[in-house]
């Protein structure tokens, strides 16, 4: 078995020191070593985007990196984005607009959408669809995902007030 390698990774503001196999994928490190199971694995060819997380502020597919490549990096996963009662506007948008059904693609989709809005705060519908090309959803037909991202953009621009909590 390959020798293990020491890594230091900050995930959602918490610093972790672990010995990992060099071949361990970042997504498996998050899920299995750290127990952060909100990041999902939906494929084995880097197509589906269910594993999308932020690495030093950029969206990456965590199935496409080794954990050792994240050594010294700052990661945000869905668990660190916002929590019940303190949701990120994109999380709120997905809830308000019914942007999810089975929920499996949702964490990756949300992380990809946050990355889009960080770079382009007022995207057009076409820009939203283009930005989410790397994230597959089998339930929603993307209709309400687009609306969720539009909601979040408006919310972040101050165009929408507090969400009703029904």
């Amino acid at each position: 078995m390959p020798d293990k390698v020491q890594i230091k990774v900050t995930v959602n503001g918490v610093e972790h020191h672990n010995e990992v196999e060099p071949r361990l994928l970042l997504v498996h490190y998050l899920r299995e070593t750290l127990g952060l199971t909100g990041t999902h694995v939906g494929c084995d060819t880097s197509q589906c985007g269910a594993c999308t997380v932020h690495l030093d502020g950029q969206a990456v597919k965590s199935c496409t990196m080794f954990a050792v490549q994240a050594d010294g990096c700052n990661l945000t996963t869905i668990e660190g984005l916002g929590s019940a009662g303190n949701l990120h506007p994109v999380q709120e948008g997905f809830w308000e607009m019914h942007g999810l059904q089975c929920g499996f693609c949702t964490p990756g989709m949300i992380m990809a959408a946050v990355d889009l809005l960080n770079k382009n705060p007022q995207p057009s519908e076409a820009e939203i669809r283009h930005a989410l090309e790397g994230n597959l959803c089998r339930c929603t037909g993307y209709h309400n995902i687009v609306r969720a991202v539009q909601y979040a953009a408006d919310k972040m621009a101050g165009k929408i007030g507090a969400a009703a909590d029904d």
Binding site: R31, L36, T37, G38, T39, H40, V41, T77, I78, E79, L81, G82, S83, A84, L87, Q91, F94, W95, E96, H98, L100, G103, F104, T106, P107, I110, D166
Partner: peptide
């Protein structure tokens, strides 16, 4: 009505078998 399922899914706290 907004879905009662959603808070767990949008915060990464769903419980799928592989989790």
């Amino acid at each position: 009505m907004k879905r009662v399922e959603d808070p767990r899914f949008i915060t990464g706290t769903g419980n799928y078998t592989d989790d």
